[in-house]
Computed example of a mutant assay.
Amino acid sequence: MDKLLKLWQSTGLYHVEPGQVFMIAICLLLIYLAIKKGFEPLLLIPIGFGGLLSNIPVANMAEGAGFLHMIYEVGLPTSVFPLLIFMGVGSMTDFGPMLANPKTLLLGAAAQFGIFGTLLGALALASLGIPGLEFTLKEAASIAIIGGADGPTSIFVTSKLAPHLLGPIAVAAYAYMALVPLIQPPIMRALTTKAERAIVMEQLRPVGQTEKIIFPLMLCLLVGLLLPDAAPLVGMFALGNLLREAGVVERLADTSRNALINIVTIFLGLTVGSKLSADSFLQIK
């Protein structure tokens, strides 16, 4: 009987807590939405599965010598994972249309209104003195960067400013981007006519290879000299784009936008999911 009792006490079922059960349900929901609804499946599936593993009692996979914790220490505090993903994104990006019509830069700049609006909103909420909602400036900045609609940037900034909020911010960022296809169409229909929506946008002029090669080099130098803190992220993005446009290293460009980014995406998702433990996630903040 004592052996049976000890065996029972060694199981995860004996040690499981209500918060862990709730978080397991949340992680299963993320996986369901990724598979059934197509919400950012490339990241929500590994994030959800990483959350499942981190909430299994006794396994301790997200702490100490646990597998997920070791991957986290390699990839997120060092920013290696977001930087490698940005290199892959750079190698996928064609800047031809933007170089042909530089005014389109203003569309991207408009995102800053949302970022700074959210930053001020989080600080205003903190000023109300509501228990559990005391956001520091760094925490508010990490929340606000979600408005940039870019998961790797959200993870990069949060890992630097507020790593304890990494799990919820990453999930919020990717869930937000996954919902854009649902949110955007009714807004577009409300603000435009059917004839306007039928307009086909064409590139204003052909953009030569020389322009496309000079652009990532100038981008890296300009951002690096003006904002050194952003140099790693923008630099890796520029490197990926240079590999794409150079025309002489197709093997490297292909690896960065396919095999490498896929491998890093798996590990990034698992490590973000490891931060979805009940202790760190189930807070008012």
Rank of each mutant, 00 (worst) to 15 (best):
A246K: 04
L222E: 01
V223P: 02
A230P: 09
V248F: 12
L243M: 13
E245W: 02
A231I: 09
L219D: 07
V249M: 13
V223T: 12
V234W: 01
G247H: 09
L243C: 14
P232E: 07
P232I: 11
V223Y: 06
F237C: 00
V223R: 06
P232A: 13
C220I: 07
V249T: 05
G240T: 02
F237E: 08
D229M: 02
A238N: 14
G235E: 03
L225C: 13
L219Q: 07
N241A: 11
P228N: 01
V248H: 14
V249P: 01
D229L: 06
G247K: 12
P228R: 04
V248A: 13
P232W: 01
R244H: 13
L242V: 06
A238V: 12
D229K: 09
L219P: 00
L225S: 13
M236S: 04
G247R: 12
L227F: 15
L239P: 12
V249I: 03
V248K: 14
A246F: 11
E245A: 01
G224T: 05
L243S: 06
V223H: 05
L221E: 03
L227T: 05
L242Y: 10
R244D: 04
L243A: 14
N241L: 11
R244G: 07
F237A: 05
A230F: 15
G224L: 10
M236V: 08
R244Y: 14
L226G: 12
L219F: 06
G247I: 04
A238K: 07
M236L: 15
A246R: 10
G240F: 08
R244I: 06
L219T: 10
L225I: 05
L233G: 08
G224D: 11
L219H: 02
N241D: 09
A238M: 10
L226Q: 12
A230D: 04
L221Q: 01
L221K: 04
L219S: 07
G224V: 01
P232Q: 00
G247V: 00
E250P: 00
G240E: 02
A230N: 08
N241M: 15
L222C: 08
L225Y: 05
A230C: 15
G224M: 04
V234N: 00
D229C: 10
V248N: 10
N241G: 08
L225N: 11
A238I: 11
F237I: 06
G235Y: 07
P232S: 11
L233R: 00
A230L: 14
V248D: 14
G247M: 06
E250Q: 13
L243H: 11
L242T: 12
A246L: 14
L233S: 01
L222M: 14
L239T: 07
V234P: 01
G240W: 06
A246T: 13
V248E: 08
C220D: 08
L227Q: 10
F237K: 00
L243W: 07
G240I: 04
A230E: 15
P228Y: 01
L243G: 00
G247T: 03
N241R: 11
L239R: 04
F237L: 13
L226Y: 12
L226V: 15
L227K: 10
L226F: 08
L221R: 03
V248Q: 05
A230T: 02
L226P: 10
N241Y: 00
V249Q: 06
L221G: 07
G235K: 00
L233W: 00
L221I: 13
L233M: 14
L225A: 14
F237Q: 00
G240R: 01
L219I: 00
A230S: 15
V223C: 09
